[in-house]
């Protein structure tokens, strides 16, 4: 097998996932939160593809494609929400959008 072993890929995947998770947890701008979510998804995609490659089985790659499709639709919805928030001149701050509090 060419190139580095699967553990390298997994390390990068975990790193990406961690960056994304921290971004989701720490940032307040919904745009950035959305971006961080995408990074998390990509981290997991990378892990899927790495395992797929290691096992010589295409299922994981198909799964990654499906995740991409979901991510794309999620971006469509999320960006739409952010645009309409902006149009209503609401603060672009997830901490202030808390009307769902019980």
């Amino acid at each position: 097998m060419l190139g580095p072993g699967v553990s390298w890929y997994l390390g990068i995947a975990a790193f990406l996932f961690g960056i994304g998770a921290l971004g989701v947890l720490l940032r307040r701008n919904p745009l950035i939160v959305l971006l961080s979510l995408e990074i998390m998804l990509n981290g997991s995609n990378l892990a899927l593809i790495a395992f797929s490659r290691q096992h010589g089985n295409g299922d994981g790659q198909i799964f990654a494609l499906a995740v991409m499709a979901v991510a794309a639709s999620e971006v469509v919805v999320g960006l739409g929400l952010i645009v309409s928030l902006n149009r209503k001149r609401l603060a672009l701050d997830v901490d202030k959008l808390s009307t769902l509090r019980g």
Partner: peptide, 17 residues
């Protein structure tokens, strides 16, 4: 149980994580 519902997305995400 109502207290758990803070309305802050980050608390939910933190709970998930």
């Amino acid at each position: 149980v109502r207290r758990l519902q803070t309305g802050l997305i980050r608390t939910y995400a933190l709970a998930l994580a």
